[in-house]
């Protein structure tokens, strides 16, 4: 079975600057089953943000917000907001390159899930 993409399992994905040195991404999963299946997915680890955004993997933070079925991932910008070759000051379009990422299911399965 083909893996599902972030776009398949979320009804909203957004990105925004979180202060001038960080970017934050919110993945709003479209139902509880998807949220449980993917909230600990290894695919959403620091390596993904290193490969897509050149983020330093040591400065990638991930949070699962059960009340909202949201996985929030924040990473330090490789260059601060407003640098000479800035292309997206408020990071509002950075989420787009995540949409087609194929997700592996949570491993190991979350016992609480």
């Amino acid at each position: 079975m083909a893996k599902l993409t972030i776009n398949d399992v979320c009804d909203q994905v957004r990105s925004k600057s979180a202060g001038p040195f960080w970017v934050t991404v919110d993945l709003f999963f479209s139902n509880e089953a998807y949220y449980k299946r993917y909230k600990h997915s290894e695919t959403l680890g620091p390596e993904l943000f290193e490969s897509l955004f050149s983020a330093n993997p040591e400065f990638v933070k991930r949070f699962a917000v059960d009340a909202l079925r949201v996985v929030k991932i924040s990473f330090a910008r490789p260059r601060p907001q407003g640098w000479v070759h800035e292309r997206d000051l408020h990071a509002g379009q950075q989420y787009v390159r995540l949409l087609n990422v194929e997700l592996a299911e949570s491993v190991p399965a979350d016992p609480q899930a």
């Binding site: 925004k16 979180a18 934050t24 919110d26 949070f63 917000v65 009340a67 909202l68 929030k72």
Partner: peptide
């Protein structure tokens, strides 16, 4: 709504908790 109030802690911050 409970959702919109809770979602406020996501907006433009690194840590939602």
């Amino acid at each position: 709504t409970p959702r919109s109030a809770a979602a406020h802690m996501l907006y433009e911050v690194v840590d939602p908790f």
